[in-house]
Amino acid sequence: MAELLKIEDLTICPASAPSRKLVSNVSFSIEPGKTTCVVGESGSGKSLTALSVMGLLSKQLVRTNGRVLFQGQDLADLSTEEMRKIRGRQIGMIFQEPMTSLNPVLTIGFQIGEPLTVHLGLKGDALKAKVNVLLEQVGIPAHRANSYPDELSGGQRQRVMIAMSIACEPLMLIADEPTTALDVTVQAQILSLLDNLKTSMNMGMLLITHDFGVVADVADDVVVMFRGEVVEAGSVAQVLNKPKHPYTKALLACVPDAEGKKPLKPIDYAWLKNEQVPA
């Protein structure tokens, strides 16, 4: 099987202004066992693209064109009930804010177990055992299952989010800036955890980030978005080492390198407008 997820000509507009395209003709695909990173500045449409895959777009936004095919099936054709069965079961999602995306009044063990009960019907001891395995997998001691989110650090909460999202062994994982709120050392741990899980479970991963360092470490393929459009897509080596599009070049020139040798160059948006875009 080639693609796990295929996005074709995805276009998203506000319901009130159908001519204003927030995401415009976005196409890319994700293969099993591979990580595709979507990079771009705030407002470039990366999160909207991810949310629309999950069918979680706000009601004020509408998909005016394009298809999202998951294993060959258009997700838009599914009923709410059918979509609910895919969400969390076959496609997992990790949100950016580990502080706000957990329920503060439920133990983390309960929250990790919830998708297992809902999708797989696990109960009692079997459920407990599976939750413990998951906690261990993400590096949290099993006895913390009875802790509440406020008793955990930011990194641990993000691990809980990961445990929840991989609980049902989804075929695909969408991670929206999973490490942006975290310290560098914790970020490195979480990224290598995700990378290992991807390999061991042969998951396809859609990782949204604005950090080219993260891209360089974990991506197989890269999609660069700018003002709602995909300006460049390709393998990580090609996009980072031989960028074709002037925007990609300009964006890379803004990134401080770890050696501190490269001078920083901010993006000149006016110049970018006049620049010829290679086909």
Partner: peptide
């Protein structure tokens, strides 16, 4: 040393 090692982007060299 640990902090420096955790800087992302070191596994593969950026352009």
């Amino acid at each position: 040393q640990n902090l420096l090692k955790a800087i992302p982007g070191q596994k593969r060299q950026l352009a």
